Lab assay of single mutants.
Amino acid sequence: QLRFETNGEEQAKKVLEEAKKHNLEAHVTIENGKWVVHVK
């Protein structure tokens, strides 16, 4: 499982879109005010 700390909602959405293009499972959590994308 990969973990990407992003700078906010915009970047998190871009990472999610990329993951979906590659048929990867991804979800976002907010940790300590940071948007974190988890990709399987």
Results as ranks from 00 to 15, higher is better:
residue 1 Q to N: 14
residue 1 Q to P: 13
residue 1 Q to E: 14
residue 1 Q to M: 15
residue 2 L to T: 11
residue 2 L to K: 07
residue 2 L to Y: 13
residue 2 L to G: 07
residue 2 L to W: 15
residue 2 L to M: 13
residue 3 R to W: 07
residue 4 F to S: 03
residue 4 F to P: 01
residue 4 F to R: 02
residue 4 F to H: 04
residue 4 F to Y: 12
residue 5 E to T: 08
residue 5 E to F: 10
residue 5 E to L: 08
residue 5 E to H: 06
residue 5 E to Q: 06
residue 5 E to W: 08
residue 6 T to F: 15
residue 6 T to M: 13
residue 6 T to I: 09
residue 6 T to Q: 03
residue 7 N to I: 11
residue 7 N to R: 10
residue 7 N to P: 08
residue 7 N to A: 14
residue 8 G to M: 10
residue 8 G to E: 13
residue 8 G to K: 09
residue 8 G to R: 09
residue 9 E to F: 13
residue 9 E to R: 07
residue 9 E to Q: 09
residue 9 E to H: 07
residue 9 E to Y: 14
residue 9 E to A: 10
residue 10 E to A: 12
residue 10 E to Q: 09
residue 10 E to G: 06
residue 11 Q to I: 07
residue 11 Q to W: 11
residue 11 Q to M: 12
residue 12 A to Q: 01
residue 12 A to K: 01
residue 12 A to V: 05
residue 12 A to C: 09
residue 13 K to I: 12
residue 13 K to Q: 13
residue 14 K to P: 02
residue 14 K to M: 13
residue 14 K to R: 13
residue 14 K to G: 06
residue 15 V to Y: 14
residue 15 V to M: 14
residue 15 V to S: 03
residue 15 V to E: 03
residue 16 L to F: 08
residue 16 L to S: 03
residue 16 L to N: 01
residue 16 L to A: 07
residue 17 E to P: 00
residue 17 E to R: 11
residue 17 E to Q: 11
residue 17 E to I: 09
residue 18 E to S: 12
residue 18 E to V: 13
residue 19 A to M: 13
residue 19 A to L: 15
residue 19 A to D: 00
residue 19 A to N: 01
residue 19 A to P: 00
residue 19 A to S: 04
residue 19 A to Y: 11
residue 20 K to T: 09
residue 20 K to H: 12
residue 20 K to Q: 11
residue 20 K to S: 08
residue 20 K to L: 14
residue 21 K to W: 08
residue 21 K to E: 06
residue 21 K to G: 05
residue 21 K to P: 00
residue 21 K to S: 09
residue 21 K to M: 10
residue 22 H to V: 05
residue 22 H to S: 07
residue 22 H to I: 05
residue 22 H to T: 04
residue 22 H to E: 05
residue 22 H to G: 05
residue 23 N to V: 02
residue 23 N to W: 07
residue 23 N to T: 03
residue 23 N to C: 11
residue 24 L to D: 02
residue 25 E to T: 11
residue 25 E to N: 09
residue 25 E to I: 13
residue 25 E to W: 10
residue 25 E to D: 12
residue 25 E to F: 11
residue 26 A to Y: 06
residue 26 A to F: 05
residue 26 A to I: 04
residue 26 A to R: 00
residue 26 A to Q: 01
residue 26 A to N: 02
residue 26 A to L: 03
residue 26 A to V: 09
residue 27 H to G: 04
residue 27 H to E: 10
residue 27 H to I: 12
residue 27 H to N: 08
residue 27 H to M: 10
residue 27 H to V: 13
residue 27 H to S: 11
residue 27 H to T: 13
residue 27 H to C: 10
residue 28 V to M: 12
residue 29 T to N: 05
residue 29 T to F: 08
residue 29 T to Y: 08
residue 29 T to R: 06
residue 30 I to D: 03
residue 30 I to S: 04
residue 30 I to E: 07
residue 30 I to W: 12
residue 30 I to R: 09
residue 31 E to Y: 05
residue 31 E to M: 07
residue 31 E to D: 06
residue 31 E to N: 04
residue 31 E to H: 06
residue 31 E to F: 06
residue 32 N to P: 00
residue 32 N to K: 06
residue 32 N to M: 06
residue 32 N to T: 02
residue 33 G to R: 02
residue 33 G to D: 06
residue 33 G to L: 03
residue 33 G to N: 06
residue 33 G to T: 02
residue 33 G to I: 00
residue 33 G to E: 04
residue 34 K to E: 03
residue 34 K to I: 14
residue 34 K to W: 06
residue 34 K to M: 13
residue 34 K to H: 08
residue 34 K to A: 07
residue 34 K to Q: 09
residue 34 K to Y: 07
residue 35 W to H: 04
residue 35 W to M: 02
residue 35 W to V: 03
residue 35 W to K: 00
residue 35 W to I: 04
residue 36 V to G: 01
residue 36 V to F: 06
residue 36 V to K: 00
residue 37 V to Q: 00
residue 37 V to F: 00
residue 37 V to E: 01
residue 37 V to N: 01
residue 38 H to Y: 15
residue 38 H to K: 06
residue 38 H to A: 05
residue 38 H to E: 05
residue 38 H to W: 15
residue 38 H to I: 15
residue 38 H to N: 09
residue 38 H to V: 15
residue 38 H to R: 07
residue 39 V to R: 00
residue 40 K to M: 15
residue 40 K to H: 14
residue 40 K to P: 06
residue 40 K to D: 11
